[in-house]
Design a protein around this nucleic acid. Structure first.
Lengths: 283, 283
DNA sequence: ATAAATTTGGAATGAATTTTCCGAATTGCT
DNA sequence: AGCAATTCGGAAAATTCATTCCAAATTTAT
Protein backbone atom coordinates (compact mmCIF):
# COMPACT_ATOMS: atom_id res chain seq x y z
CA UNK A 1 0.00 0.00 0.00
CA UNK A 2 2.56 2.48 1.09
CA UNK A 3 4.78 1.54 -1.82
CA UNK A 4 1.91 2.13 -4.19
CA UNK A 5 1.19 5.55 -2.81
CA UNK A 6 4.83 6.44 -3.08
CA UNK A 7 4.84 5.28 -6.64
CA UNK A 8 1.75 7.28 -7.52
CA UNK A 9 3.05 10.47 -5.93
CA UNK A 10 6.77 10.28 -5.43
CA UNK A 11 7.18 14.02 -5.14
CA UNK A 12 6.99 15.58 -1.72
CA UNK A 13 4.63 18.40 -0.74
CA UNK A 14 6.49 21.68 -0.93
CA UNK A 15 4.16 23.94 1.02
CA UNK A 16 1.58 23.73 3.73
CA UNK A 17 -1.36 23.82 1.39
CA UNK A 18 -0.27 20.88 -0.69
CA UNK A 19 0.65 19.07 2.49
CA UNK A 20 -2.88 19.55 3.77
CA UNK A 21 -4.24 18.40 0.45
CA UNK A 22 -2.16 15.25 0.55
CA UNK A 23 -3.16 14.47 4.10
CA UNK A 24 -6.73 14.90 3.02
CA UNK A 25 -6.48 12.50 0.11
CA UNK A 26 -4.46 9.88 1.97
CA UNK A 27 -6.47 10.00 5.16
CA UNK A 28 -8.99 7.55 3.73
CA UNK A 29 -6.49 4.75 3.54
CA UNK A 30 -4.70 5.57 6.78
CA UNK A 31 -4.70 3.18 9.70
CA UNK A 32 -5.82 4.34 13.10
CA UNK A 33 -2.59 5.71 14.52
CA UNK A 34 -1.57 7.53 11.40
CA UNK A 35 -4.97 9.15 11.26
CA UNK A 36 -4.41 10.23 14.81
CA UNK A 37 -1.21 11.90 13.69
CA UNK A 38 -3.01 13.54 10.79
CA UNK A 39 -5.67 14.96 13.04
CA UNK A 40 -3.17 16.22 15.55
CA UNK A 41 -0.98 17.76 12.91
CA UNK A 42 -3.83 19.68 11.33
CA UNK A 43 -5.13 20.82 14.68
CA UNK A 44 -1.74 21.79 16.11
CA UNK A 45 0.51 22.80 13.25
CA UNK A 46 2.51 25.08 15.52
CA UNK A 47 3.51 22.28 17.82
CA UNK A 48 4.61 20.16 14.90
CA UNK A 49 6.73 23.06 13.71
CA UNK A 50 8.53 23.56 16.99
CA UNK A 51 8.39 20.37 19.01
CA UNK A 52 10.57 17.30 19.06
CA UNK A 53 9.24 13.91 18.04
CA UNK A 54 9.09 12.84 21.66
CA UNK A 55 7.08 15.86 22.76
CA UNK A 56 4.68 15.81 19.85
CA UNK A 57 4.22 12.07 20.02
CA UNK A 58 3.29 12.18 23.66
CA UNK A 59 0.93 15.11 23.08
CA UNK A 60 -0.72 13.29 20.20
CA UNK A 61 -0.85 10.02 22.08
CA UNK A 62 1.34 8.04 19.72
CA UNK A 63 4.89 6.73 19.55
CA UNK A 64 7.70 8.83 18.08
CA UNK A 65 8.22 6.16 15.48
CA UNK A 66 4.62 6.52 14.38
CA UNK A 67 5.26 10.19 13.74
CA UNK A 68 8.14 9.30 11.48
CA UNK A 69 6.04 6.75 9.68
CA UNK A 70 3.34 9.35 9.24
CA UNK A 71 5.78 11.72 7.58
CA UNK A 72 7.03 8.92 5.36
CA UNK A 73 3.52 7.98 4.35
CA UNK A 74 3.08 11.54 3.09
CA UNK A 75 6.16 11.15 0.93
CA UNK A 76 8.83 12.70 3.12
CA UNK A 77 12.09 11.01 4.01
CA UNK A 78 11.30 11.41 7.66
CA UNK A 79 9.81 13.63 10.28
CA UNK A 80 12.38 16.39 10.02
CA UNK A 81 11.64 17.02 6.39
CA UNK A 82 7.95 17.31 7.07
CA UNK A 83 8.63 19.59 10.00
CA UNK A 84 10.25 22.10 7.69
CA UNK A 85 6.96 22.61 5.89
CA UNK A 86 5.26 23.39 9.17
CA UNK A 87 8.06 25.76 10.09
CA UNK A 88 7.75 27.53 6.77
CA UNK A 89 4.07 28.04 7.39
CA UNK A 90 4.83 29.48 10.82
CA UNK A 91 7.29 32.02 9.52
CA UNK A 92 5.42 33.01 6.38
CA UNK A 93 2.32 33.65 8.40
CA UNK A 94 3.48 36.82 10.06
CA UNK A 95 4.42 38.65 6.93
CA UNK A 96 1.54 37.24 4.95
CA UNK A 97 -1.01 38.42 7.40
CA UNK A 98 -0.29 42.12 7.25
CA UNK A 99 0.18 41.82 3.52
CA UNK A 100 -3.13 40.13 3.23
CA UNK A 101 -4.87 42.67 5.40
CA UNK A 102 -3.78 45.55 3.23
CA UNK A 103 -4.78 43.63 0.15
CA UNK A 104 -8.20 43.00 1.61
CA UNK A 105 -8.59 46.62 2.60
CA UNK A 106 -7.71 47.69 -0.91
CA UNK A 107 -10.16 45.24 -2.40
CA UNK A 108 -12.94 47.26 -0.78
CA UNK A 109 -16.11 45.86 0.65
CA UNK A 110 -17.56 44.51 -2.54
CA UNK A 111 -15.53 41.37 -2.91
CA UNK A 112 -16.25 38.37 -0.68
CA UNK A 113 -12.80 38.66 0.87
CA UNK A 114 -13.34 42.34 1.51
CA UNK A 115 -16.64 41.74 3.20
CA UNK A 116 -15.11 39.03 5.35
CA UNK A 117 -12.17 41.22 6.27
CA UNK A 118 -14.56 43.93 7.27
CA UNK A 119 -16.60 41.62 9.47
CA UNK A 120 -13.54 40.12 11.08
CA UNK A 121 -12.24 43.54 12.03
CA UNK A 122 -15.55 44.71 13.37
CA UNK A 123 -16.15 41.48 15.21
CA UNK A 124 -12.82 41.80 16.95
CA UNK A 125 -13.71 45.32 18.00
CA UNK A 126 -17.07 44.14 19.11
CA UNK A 127 -15.50 41.40 21.22
CA UNK A 128 -13.24 43.97 22.81
CA UNK A 129 -16.23 46.12 23.62
CA UNK A 130 -18.00 43.15 25.11
CA UNK A 131 -15.20 42.44 27.51
CA UNK A 132 -14.84 46.07 28.42
CA UNK A 133 -18.48 46.89 28.86
CA UNK A 134 -19.83 43.66 30.24
CA UNK A 135 -21.68 44.02 33.49
CA UNK A 136 -19.95 41.32 35.49
CA UNK A 137 -22.49 41.61 38.26
CA UNK A 138 -25.32 41.02 35.84
CA UNK A 139 -23.39 38.19 34.25
CA UNK A 140 -22.80 36.48 37.55
CA UNK A 141 -26.38 36.93 38.61
CA UNK A 142 -27.51 35.45 35.31
CA UNK A 143 -25.34 32.40 35.80
CA UNK A 144 -26.60 32.00 39.33
CA UNK A 145 -30.21 32.29 38.31
CA UNK A 146 -29.80 29.82 35.46
CA UNK A 147 -27.87 27.42 37.65
CA UNK A 148 -30.45 27.54 40.40
CA UNK A 149 -33.46 27.23 38.13
CA UNK A 150 -35.51 24.09 38.20
CA UNK A 151 -36.15 24.34 34.48
CA UNK A 152 -34.53 26.65 31.95
CA UNK A 153 -36.75 27.96 29.18
CA UNK A 154 -35.22 29.52 26.10
CA UNK A 155 -36.91 32.03 23.84
CA UNK A 156 -35.67 33.92 20.81
CA UNK A 157 -37.09 34.59 17.36
CA UNK A 158 -35.65 35.70 14.05
CA UNK A 159 -32.05 36.75 14.48
CA UNK A 160 -32.11 35.69 18.11
CA UNK A 161 -33.26 32.18 17.33
CA UNK A 162 -29.82 30.81 16.42
CA UNK A 163 -28.58 32.06 19.78
CA UNK A 164 -31.10 30.19 21.85
CA UNK A 165 -31.02 27.10 19.66
CA UNK A 166 -27.27 27.02 20.22
CA UNK A 167 -27.73 27.40 23.96
CA UNK A 168 -30.27 24.62 23.84
CA UNK A 169 -27.78 22.34 22.16
CA UNK A 170 -24.71 23.26 24.20
CA UNK A 171 -26.41 23.18 27.59
CA UNK A 172 -27.90 19.87 26.59
CA UNK A 173 -24.45 18.50 25.88
CA UNK A 174 -23.40 19.59 29.34
CA UNK A 175 -26.19 17.69 30.92
CA UNK A 176 -28.45 20.69 31.49
CA UNK A 177 -31.86 20.09 30.03
CA UNK A 178 -33.57 23.13 28.57
CA UNK A 179 -36.90 23.89 27.01
CA UNK A 180 -36.56 25.63 23.67
CA UNK A 181 -39.73 27.60 22.98
CA UNK A 182 -40.38 27.38 19.28
CA UNK A 183 -42.83 29.72 17.67
CA UNK A 184 -45.56 27.69 16.12
CA UNK A 185 -48.35 30.01 15.27
CA UNK A 186 -50.08 32.08 17.87
CA UNK A 187 -50.00 29.61 20.71
CA UNK A 188 -46.75 30.91 22.20
CA UNK A 189 -48.41 32.98 24.88
CA UNK A 190 -50.37 30.06 26.15
CA UNK A 191 -47.18 28.35 27.19
CA UNK A 192 -46.45 30.91 29.86
CA UNK A 193 -48.60 28.93 32.22
CA UNK A 194 -46.16 26.03 32.06
CA UNK A 195 -43.36 28.16 33.44
CA UNK A 196 -43.34 28.27 37.20
CA UNK A 197 -41.69 30.40 39.84
CA UNK A 198 -38.67 28.19 40.33
CA UNK A 199 -37.84 28.26 36.62
CA UNK A 200 -35.73 30.70 34.67
CA UNK A 201 -36.53 32.20 31.28
CA UNK A 202 -33.64 33.12 29.07
CA UNK A 203 -34.81 35.42 26.33
CA UNK A 204 -32.83 36.95 23.50
CA UNK A 205 -34.19 39.76 21.39
CA UNK A 206 -32.67 42.42 19.19
CA UNK A 207 -33.93 45.51 17.48
CA UNK A 208 -36.58 45.50 16.10
CA UNK A 209 -37.82 43.69 19.18
CA UNK A 210 -40.46 41.08 18.47
CA UNK A 211 -43.56 42.20 20.40
CA UNK A 212 -44.60 38.63 21.08
CA UNK A 213 -41.30 37.86 22.75
CA UNK A 214 -41.50 40.95 24.95
CA UNK A 215 -45.08 40.14 25.75
CA UNK A 216 -44.18 36.59 26.68
CA UNK A 217 -41.31 37.69 28.91
CA UNK A 218 -43.52 40.29 30.52
CA UNK A 219 -46.12 37.70 31.48
CA UNK A 220 -43.49 35.33 32.82
CA UNK A 221 -41.87 38.14 34.78
CA UNK A 222 -45.26 39.06 36.18
CA UNK A 223 -45.62 35.51 37.42
CA UNK A 224 -42.41 35.85 39.42
CA UNK A 225 -40.23 33.91 36.99
CA UNK A 226 -36.56 34.86 36.86
CA UNK A 227 -36.08 36.45 33.42
CA UNK A 228 -32.55 36.74 32.01
CA UNK A 229 -32.48 38.73 28.82
CA UNK A 230 -29.83 39.12 26.18
CA UNK A 231 -30.36 42.20 24.06
CA UNK A 232 -28.60 45.00 22.20
CA UNK A 233 -29.45 48.02 24.30
CA UNK A 234 -30.55 48.89 27.79
CA UNK A 235 -33.33 50.80 26.08
CA UNK A 236 -34.70 47.52 24.79
CA UNK A 237 -38.30 47.00 25.89
CA UNK A 238 -37.22 43.65 27.28
CA UNK A 239 -35.12 45.39 29.92
CA UNK A 240 -38.15 46.51 31.89
CA UNK A 241 -39.45 42.99 32.24
CA UNK A 242 -36.18 41.28 33.13
CA UNK A 243 -34.49 40.31 36.35
CA UNK A 244 -31.12 40.63 34.67
CA UNK A 245 -30.11 42.24 31.39
CA UNK A 246 -27.05 41.34 29.34
CA UNK A 247 -26.09 43.78 26.63
CA UNK A 248 -24.18 43.04 23.44
CA UNK A 249 -23.17 45.44 20.70
CA UNK A 250 -22.78 43.37 17.62
CA UNK A 251 -20.56 44.06 14.62
CA UNK A 252 -22.38 45.63 11.70
CA UNK A 253 -21.88 45.92 7.98
CA UNK A 254 -24.39 48.29 6.56
CA UNK A 255 -27.73 47.09 7.80
CA UNK A 256 -26.45 43.62 8.58
CA UNK A 257 -25.22 42.48 11.91
CA UNK A 258 -23.20 39.43 12.67
CA UNK A 259 -23.83 37.11 15.62
CA UNK A 260 -20.20 36.63 16.36
CA UNK A 261 -19.98 38.46 19.67
CA UNK A 262 -23.37 37.31 20.80
CA UNK A 263 -22.35 33.70 20.24
CA UNK A 264 -19.20 34.26 22.21
CA UNK A 265 -21.18 35.48 25.17
CA UNK A 266 -23.74 32.71 24.77
CA UNK A 267 -21.03 30.07 24.80
CA UNK A 268 -19.50 31.56 27.92
CA UNK A 269 -22.86 31.51 29.64
CA UNK A 270 -23.42 27.90 28.66
CA UNK A 271 -20.03 26.81 29.96
CA UNK A 272 -20.40 28.79 33.18
CA UNK A 273 -23.84 27.37 33.84
CA UNK A 274 -22.66 23.88 32.98
CA UNK A 275 -19.78 24.25 35.42
CA UNK A 276 -21.97 25.62 38.19
CA UNK A 277 -24.51 22.84 37.74
CA UNK A 278 -21.80 20.23 37.80
CA UNK A 279 -20.42 21.47 41.13
CA UNK A 280 -23.79 21.60 42.77
CA UNK A 281 -24.79 18.19 41.50
CA UNK A 282 -21.54 16.70 42.76
CA UNK A 283 -21.77 18.16 46.23
CA UNK B 1 31.84 40.68 34.39
CA UNK B 2 29.67 37.74 33.59
CA UNK B 3 29.51 36.75 37.23
CA UNK B 4 28.47 40.24 38.14
CA UNK B 5 25.67 40.29 35.66
CA UNK B 6 24.43 37.00 36.90
CA UNK B 7 24.42 38.35 40.39
CA UNK B 8 22.61 41.51 39.41
CA UNK B 9 19.96 39.74 37.37
CA UNK B 10 19.86 36.05 38.07
CA UNK B 11 16.35 35.66 36.74
CA UNK B 12 15.92 34.78 33.10
CA UNK B 13 13.81 36.76 30.63
CA UNK B 14 10.44 35.08 30.25
CA UNK B 15 9.21 36.71 27.07
CA UNK B 16 10.56 38.29 23.95
CA UNK B 17 10.07 41.85 25.15
CA UNK B 18 12.10 41.45 28.30
CA UNK B 19 14.68 39.54 26.33
CA UNK B 20 15.04 42.42 23.92
CA UNK B 21 15.28 44.81 26.84
CA UNK B 22 18.05 42.79 28.44
CA UNK B 23 19.98 42.55 25.20
CA UNK B 24 19.81 46.29 24.80
CA UNK B 25 21.02 47.01 28.34
CA UNK B 26 23.83 44.49 28.17
CA UNK B 27 24.94 45.29 24.66
CA UNK B 28 27.05 48.21 25.88
CA UNK B 29 29.37 45.97 27.82
CA UNK B 30 29.46 43.17 25.26
CA UNK B 31 32.63 42.14 23.49
CA UNK B 32 32.74 42.06 19.72
CA UNK B 33 31.49 38.55 19.00
CA UNK B 34 28.66 38.65 21.49
CA UNK B 35 27.52 41.95 20.05
CA UNK B 36 27.55 40.26 16.68
CA UNK B 37 25.22 37.63 18.10
CA UNK B 38 22.98 40.28 19.61
CA UNK B 39 22.67 42.13 16.34
CA UNK B 40 21.97 38.97 14.41
CA UNK B 41 19.42 37.76 16.93
CA UNK B 42 17.45 40.99 16.87
CA UNK B 43 17.59 41.18 13.10
CA UNK B 44 16.68 37.52 12.49
CA UNK B 45 14.55 36.32 15.40
CA UNK B 46 12.85 33.75 13.19
CA UNK B 47 16.08 32.02 12.35
CA UNK B 48 17.05 31.89 15.99
CA UNK B 49 13.70 30.32 16.73
CA UNK B 50 14.01 27.58 14.13
CA UNK B 51 17.67 27.02 13.36
CA UNK B 52 20.32 24.89 15.00
CA UNK B 53 23.38 26.38 16.67
CA UNK B 54 25.52 25.32 13.74
CA UNK B 55 23.27 26.94 11.14
CA UNK B 56 22.74 30.15 13.04
CA UNK B 57 26.37 30.46 14.02
CA UNK B 58 27.51 30.14 10.46
CA UNK B 59 24.88 32.63 9.28
CA UNK B 60 25.89 35.08 11.97
CA UNK B 61 29.57 34.53 11.36
CA UNK B 62 30.41 33.18 14.78
CA UNK B 63 31.13 29.85 16.42
CA UNK B 64 28.36 27.72 17.88
CA UNK B 65 29.99 28.00 21.26
CA UNK B 66 29.76 31.78 21.04
CA UNK B 67 26.04 31.47 20.57
CA UNK B 68 25.82 29.45 23.75
CA UNK B 69 27.92 32.00 25.62
CA UNK B 70 25.67 34.72 24.30
CA UNK B 71 22.62 32.99 25.72
CA UNK B 72 24.38 32.46 29.02
CA UNK B 73 25.39 36.11 29.19
CA UNK B 74 21.71 36.96 28.99
CA UNK B 75 21.01 34.73 31.94
CA UNK B 76 19.91 31.53 30.28
CA UNK B 77 21.36 28.11 31.01
CA UNK B 78 22.23 27.71 27.39
CA UNK B 79 21.14 28.33 23.84
CA UNK B 80 18.15 26.02 23.92
CA UNK B 81 16.51 27.90 26.73
CA UNK B 82 16.89 31.18 24.92
CA UNK B 83 15.57 29.64 21.74
CA UNK B 84 12.29 28.87 23.44
CA UNK B 85 11.64 32.56 23.94
CA UNK B 86 12.13 33.17 20.25
CA UNK B 87 9.84 30.28 19.45
CA UNK B 88 7.19 31.64 21.74
CA UNK B 89 7.34 34.94 19.94
CA UNK B 90 6.89 33.16 16.64
CA UNK B 91 3.79 31.28 17.74
CA UNK B 92 2.03 34.00 19.65
CA UNK B 93 2.57 36.42 16.78
CA UNK B 94 0.46 38.98 18.49
CA UNK B 95 1.86 38.06 21.85
CA UNK B 96 -0.93 40.23 23.18
CA UNK B 97 -3.24 37.27 23.03
CA UNK B 98 -1.19 34.81 24.97
CA UNK B 99 -0.19 37.55 27.35
CA UNK B 100 -3.76 38.49 28.09
CA UNK B 101 -4.78 34.87 28.30
CA UNK B 102 -2.25 34.14 31.01
CA UNK B 103 -3.43 37.25 32.80
CA UNK B 104 -6.96 35.95 32.62
CA UNK B 105 -5.90 32.54 33.84
CA UNK B 106 -4.27 34.09 36.84
CA UNK B 107 -7.52 35.74 37.78
CA UNK B 108 -9.18 32.35 37.54
CA UNK B 109 -11.11 30.75 34.71
CA UNK B 110 -13.88 29.48 36.89
CA UNK B 111 -15.64 32.74 37.38
CA UNK B 112 -18.14 33.79 34.70
CA UNK B 113 -15.99 36.80 33.89
CA UNK B 114 -12.95 34.58 33.54
CA UNK B 115 -14.70 32.20 31.20
CA UNK B 116 -15.95 35.10 29.11
CA UNK B 117 -12.51 36.68 28.99
CA UNK B 118 -11.10 33.40 27.84
CA UNK B 119 -13.61 33.00 25.05
CA UNK B 120 -13.25 36.59 23.95
CA UNK B 121 -9.49 36.31 23.59
CA UNK B 122 -9.66 32.97 21.86
CA UNK B 123 -12.39 34.15 19.56
CA UNK B 124 -10.35 37.14 18.53
CA UNK B 125 -7.43 34.90 17.81
CA UNK B 126 -9.69 32.56 15.96
CA UNK B 127 -10.96 35.45 13.85
CA UNK B 128 -7.41 36.39 13.01
CA UNK B 129 -6.75 32.84 11.96
CA UNK B 130 -9.85 32.86 9.81
CA UNK B 131 -8.67 35.86 7.85
CA UNK B 132 -5.22 34.41 7.58
CA UNK B 133 -6.18 30.92 6.54
CA UNK B 134 -9.31 31.49 4.54
CA UNK B 135 -9.14 30.18 1.03
CA UNK B 136 -10.31 33.25 -0.85
CA UNK B 137 -10.66 31.26 -4.03
CA UNK B 138 -12.95 28.77 -2.32
CA UNK B 139 -14.84 31.63 -0.73
CA UNK B 140 -15.41 33.36 -4.03
CA UNK B 141 -16.44 30.16 -5.73
CA UNK B 142 -18.89 29.53 -2.90
CA UNK B 143 -20.46 32.93 -3.32
CA UNK B 144 -20.69 32.43 -7.07
CA UNK B 145 -22.31 29.05 -6.74
CA UNK B 146 -24.80 30.27 -4.17
CA UNK B 147 -25.58 33.34 -6.23
CA UNK B 148 -26.11 31.39 -9.39
CA UNK B 149 -28.22 28.68 -7.81
CA UNK B 150 -31.87 28.45 -8.66
CA UNK B 151 -32.67 27.38 -5.11
CA UNK B 152 -30.41 27.32 -2.06
CA UNK B 153 -30.85 24.46 0.35
CA UNK B 154 -29.40 24.67 3.84
CA UNK B 155 -28.45 21.73 6.01
CA UNK B 156 -26.84 21.53 9.43
CA UNK B 157 -27.57 19.59 12.59
CA UNK B 158 -26.58 19.92 16.22
CA UNK B 159 -23.93 22.57 16.61
CA UNK B 160 -24.16 23.45 12.96
CA UNK B 161 -27.88 24.08 13.07
CA UNK B 162 -27.67 27.61 14.47
CA UNK B 163 -25.37 28.48 11.59
CA UNK B 164 -27.75 27.43 8.87
CA UNK B 165 -30.79 28.76 10.66
CA UNK B 166 -29.04 32.11 10.85
CA UNK B 167 -28.21 31.97 7.15
CA UNK B 168 -31.80 31.11 6.45
CA UNK B 169 -32.93 34.19 8.33
CA UNK B 170 -30.34 36.63 7.02
CA UNK B 171 -30.55 35.57 3.40
CA UNK B 172 -34.30 35.79 3.70
CA UNK B 173 -34.03 39.35 4.90
CA UNK B 174 -31.95 40.14 1.86
CA UNK B 175 -34.58 38.77 -0.43
CA UNK B 176 -32.88 35.46 -1.09
CA UNK B 177 -35.25 32.62 -0.39
CA UNK B 178 -33.67 29.49 1.03
CA UNK B 179 -34.88 26.05 1.97
CA UNK B 180 -33.85 25.12 5.48
CA UNK B 181 -33.74 21.34 5.76
CA UNK B 182 -34.91 20.41 9.22
CA UNK B 183 -34.36 16.97 10.54
CA UNK B 184 -37.70 15.47 11.30
CA UNK B 185 -37.23 11.79 11.77
CA UNK B 186 -35.71 9.58 9.14
CA UNK B 187 -37.19 11.27 6.13
CA UNK B 188 -34.23 13.54 5.50
CA UNK B 189 -32.73 11.40 2.78
CA UNK B 190 -35.91 11.29 0.80
CA UNK B 191 -35.71 15.01 0.25
CA UNK B 192 -32.64 14.71 -1.91
CA UNK B 193 -34.88 14.11 -4.86
CA UNK B 194 -36.29 17.62 -4.55
CA UNK B 195 -32.90 19.15 -5.09
CA UNK B 196 -32.04 19.52 -8.73
CA UNK B 197 -28.91 20.20 -10.70
CA UNK B 198 -29.34 23.95 -10.86
CA UNK B 199 -29.62 24.21 -7.09
CA UNK B 200 -26.93 24.61 -4.48
CA UNK B 201 -26.67 22.82 -1.17
CA UNK B 202 -24.96 24.62 1.67
CA UNK B 203 -24.06 22.17 4.38
CA UNK B 204 -22.36 22.83 7.71
CA UNK B 205 -20.99 20.02 9.81
CA UNK B 206 -18.42 19.80 12.57
CA UNK B 207 -16.67 17.02 14.38
CA UNK B 208 -18.17 14.60 15.18
CA UNK B 209 -19.69 14.73 11.74
CA UNK B 210 -23.30 13.63 11.58
CA UNK B 211 -23.40 10.64 9.23
CA UNK B 212 -26.85 11.55 7.96
CA UNK B 213 -25.64 14.97 6.88
CA UNK B 214 -22.65 13.52 5.06
CA UNK B 215 -24.85 10.92 3.48
CA UNK B 216 -27.31 13.54 2.32
CA UNK B 217 -24.59 15.73 0.85
CA UNK B 218 -23.06 12.73 -0.82
CA UNK B 219 -26.28 11.87 -2.59
CA UNK B 220 -26.85 15.45 -3.66
CA UNK B 221 -23.29 15.71 -4.93
CA UNK B 222 -23.78 12.50 -6.82
CA UNK B 223 -26.76 14.06 -8.53
CA UNK B 224 -24.58 16.89 -9.80
CA UNK B 225 -25.73 19.45 -7.26
CA UNK B 226 -23.24 22.14 -6.28
CA UNK B 227 -22.34 21.38 -2.67
CA UNK B 228 -20.75 24.13 -0.57
CA UNK B 229 -19.61 22.86 2.79
CA UNK B 230 -18.55 24.65 5.94
CA UNK B 231 -16.54 22.45 8.24
CA UNK B 232 -13.68 22.38 10.72
CA UNK B 233 -11.03 20.32 9.01
CA UNK B 234 -9.92 19.07 5.65
CA UNK B 235 -10.24 15.61 7.17
CA UNK B 236 -13.94 16.15 7.45
CA UNK B 237 -15.80 13.43 5.52
CA UNK B 238 -17.88 16.16 3.96
CA UNK B 239 -14.86 17.43 2.04
CA UNK B 240 -14.94 14.50 -0.35
CA UNK B 241 -18.50 15.15 -1.39
CA UNK B 242 -18.27 18.90 -1.82
CA UNK B 243 -17.69 21.21 -4.74
CA UNK B 244 -16.18 23.78 -2.39
CA UNK B 245 -14.95 23.48 1.18
CA UNK B 246 -14.73 26.34 3.66
CA UNK B 247 -12.68 25.62 6.75
CA UNK B 248 -13.06 27.30 10.12
CA UNK B 249 -11.02 26.70 13.25
CA UNK B 250 -13.21 27.69 16.11
CA UNK B 251 -12.06 28.80 19.55
CA UNK B 252 -12.20 26.15 22.24
CA UNK B 253 -12.51 26.13 25.97
CA UNK B 254 -11.86 22.63 27.14
CA UNK B 255 -14.24 20.49 25.15
CA UNK B 256 -16.53 23.37 24.24
CA UNK B 257 -16.28 25.37 21.10
CA UNK B 258 -17.83 28.70 20.40
CA UNK B 259 -19.57 29.61 17.15
CA UNK B 260 -18.18 33.08 17.07
CA UNK B 261 -15.84 32.76 14.12
CA UNK B 262 -18.18 30.51 12.21
CA UNK B 263 -20.94 33.09 12.54
CA UNK B 264 -18.65 35.80 11.30
CA UNK B 265 -17.92 33.80 8.17
CA UNK B 266 -21.58 32.89 7.76
CA UNK B 267 -22.62 36.52 7.95
CA UNK B 268 -20.04 37.48 5.37
CA UNK B 269 -21.31 34.80 3.05
CA UNK B 270 -24.86 35.97 3.47
CA UNK B 271 -23.99 39.59 2.74
CA UNK B 272 -21.84 38.66 -0.23
CA UNK B 273 -24.52 36.44 -1.72
CA UNK B 274 -27.14 39.08 -1.04
CA UNK B 275 -25.04 41.67 -2.83
CA UNK B 276 -24.35 39.42 -5.78
CA UNK B 277 -28.00 38.53 -6.17
CA UNK B 278 -29.00 42.15 -6.02
CA UNK B 279 -26.68 43.09 -8.86
CA UNK B 280 -27.81 40.29 -11.10
CA UNK B 281 -31.48 40.94 -10.42
CA UNK B 282 -31.04 44.63 -11.20
CA UNK B 283 -29.25 44.12 -14.48
C1' DA C 1 -11.17 -20.46 11.63
C1' DT C 2 -6.72 -19.95 9.81
C1' DA C 3 -3.19 -17.80 7.48
C1' DA C 4 -1.22 -13.71 5.44
C1' DA C 5 -0.52 -9.01 5.55
C1' DT C 6 -0.45 -4.87 7.81
C1' DT C 7 0.12 -2.01 11.66
C1' DT C 8 1.92 -0.93 16.08
C1' DG C 9 4.88 -0.29 20.26
C1' DG C 10 9.16 0.04 22.13
C1' DA C 11 13.93 -0.76 22.42
C1' DA C 12 18.26 -0.03 19.98
C1' DT C 13 21.00 2.56 16.90
C1' DG C 14 23.26 6.07 14.84
C1' DA C 15 23.27 10.80 13.69
C1' DA C 16 23.00 15.46 15.01
C1' DT C 17 23.15 19.02 18.29
C1' DT C 18 24.18 21.47 22.38
C1' DT C 19 27.42 22.31 25.72
C1' DT C 20 31.88 22.23 27.98
C1' DC C 21 36.63 22.88 28.15
C1' DC C 22 41.09 24.69 27.32
C1' DG C 23 44.82 26.69 24.75
C1' DA C 24 45.40 30.66 21.76
C1' DA C 25 44.43 35.26 20.63
C1' DT C 26 42.97 39.65 21.70
C1' DT C 27 42.12 43.49 24.49
C1' DG C 28 42.84 46.69 28.24
C1' DC C 29 45.77 48.57 31.69
C1' DT C 30 50.01 50.38 33.68
C1' DA D 1 55.88 47.57 25.64
C1' DG D 2 54.65 44.06 28.90
C1' DC D 3 51.41 41.92 31.92
C1' DA D 4 46.81 40.47 33.35
C1' DA D 5 42.24 39.74 32.26
C1' DT D 6 39.01 38.75 29.06
C1' DT D 7 37.40 36.78 24.92
C1' DC D 8 37.55 33.57 21.28
C1' DG D 9 37.96 29.37 18.39
C1' DG D 10 37.71 24.78 17.83
C1' DA D 11 37.83 20.21 19.28
C1' DA D 12 35.90 16.88 22.44
C1' DA D 13 32.23 15.28 25.37
C1' DA D 14 27.68 14.70 26.68
C1' DT D 15 23.21 14.84 25.64
C1' DT D 16 19.28 14.71 22.91
C1' DC D 17 17.04 13.48 18.94
C1' DA D 18 15.29 11.14 14.69
C1' DT D 19 15.22 6.97 12.71
C1' DT D 20 15.43 2.03 12.10
C1' DC D 21 14.31 -2.50 13.28
C1' DC D 22 11.82 -6.35 14.94
C1' DA D 23 8.62 -8.89 17.62
C1' DA D 24 3.86 -8.58 19.10
C1' DA D 25 -0.71 -7.34 18.06
C1' DT D 26 -4.17 -6.36 15.03
C1' DT D 27 -6.57 -6.45 10.87
C1' DT D 28 -7.82 -8.46 6.47
C1' DA D 29 -8.58 -12.00 3.26
C1' DT D 30 -9.48 -16.72 2.36
Amino acid sequence: MTQNLDAISPDIPSDYESLKARISTLSDSMPKRLLQCARYALANPDRIALGTTAEIASAAGVQPSTLVRFAQTLGFDGFSQMQQIFQGQLVGRNSEYTERLTKIRESGTNTPGGILGNFVERSKQSLDDLLRQVDTVALERSIEALSAAENIHLLGLRRAYPVVSYLHYTLGKMGVRTNLLEYTGGILEERVQFINENDALFVATFSPYSPEVVEFASKAFGRGVSVISLTDSVLSPIARVSSTVLEVNEAEHGAFRSLSTTMCLATSIAVAVGDARKWTSLS
